[in-house]
Amino acid sequence: MGTSVFYFVATLSVFFALMVVFAKNPIHSVLYLILTFFTFTVHYILLNAQFLAVVNFIVYMGAIMVLFLFVLMLLNLNKQNEPNKSTLLRVIGVIAGGCLAVTLIGSLKSVAIADPLVLKNPSLGLVENLGKELFGPFMLPFELSSLLLLSAMVGAVLLTKKEEKTNG
């Protein structure tokens, strides 16, 4: 039961992810990306990580993708003002993508599949256990990453602020 559901959802994930790349219209791409994230949410639920599933749902589907859609709608991209991509760029893109794919496959092959972390502690993804892990052994990295996000936020606000006076 669980395995067949996994394969079904995984197929959907891959299909929607491919559609993100192949869709001609950027808005359609974003919509497919939303569906891809939705399938990720299902994956998290299948792994018994309810908290991660809901957070993925809120943050990626509910917030970040809305912003993506917002920006694309604001730009209103269409066929006419799409820049012409030269053949050289395409070749370079294919080579770069191929290199990434080879690296990923290589690293995945070396990972031992016989050591699934989830099965050792199946209730790790529930909010209580996750919180205890994050604020216990992983306190420092957690706080550091929040500092990183904060500094990125301050930087973004600073960049968008217009310089009011430039008299030196």
Partner: peptide, 10 residues
């Protein structure tokens, strides 16, 4: 569900 509040928020 034990994250019901977050579900509604989502």
């Amino acid at each position: 569900i034990n994250v019901g509040l977050l579900y509604i928020f989502g």
